[in-house]
Design a protein around this nucleic acid. Structure first.
Length: 119
DNA sequence: TTAATGACCTCCG
DNA sequence: TCGGAGGCCATTA
């Protein structure tokens, strides 16, 4: 599969893999980076499939716009997502990320779409 | 082919 | 400032 055949969710995977350890981003931020800021739901759908993706996708670093761990139910156990984040130095309270803004990592500010998907 | 679904976001009252 | 409703678009049945 060449870069042009990359489906939307494969681009989501590739973007998510670039999220630095200890940082997080949002579905909407990824959607905007991929060119369709209104496709945030598709990013969520893509994360559903990320379990069988290889290389692995750090899906736990993707939360919703408020820093809530809305996707925790889709991990092996509802605690998995929180544990992964805490293992990276983040603090989770009531299924919500503390200091979300400070740890927020915006793909469109650190990555270049052309570099990733168009060489 | 049509209809329904979804780990969301934004706008409007 | 807060809450509700609509919209978006790929994938699956």
């Amino acid at each position: 599969m060449d870069e042009k055949s990359l489906s939307f969710y494969e681009k989501v995977f590739e973007t998510a893999r670039h999220i630095p350890r200890g940082r997080v981003t949002s579905y909407g931020a990824i959607a905007r980076f991929l060119g369709s800021g209104r496709s945030a739901r598709l990013v969520g759908y893509a994360m559903n499939l990320s379990h069988m993706a290889f290389p692995p996708v750090p899906a736990h670093r993707v939360v919703n716009r408020n820093g809530m761990l809305t996707g925790r139910m889709h991990f092996e156990t509802p605690e998995t997502m929180q544990r992964c984040l805490e293992a990276e130095g983040l603090t989770v309270r009531q299924h919500q990320l503390l200091h979300f803004k400070e740890h927020f990592w915006d793909p469109s500010a650190h990555l270049n779409y052309s570099d990733l998907f168009e060489q």
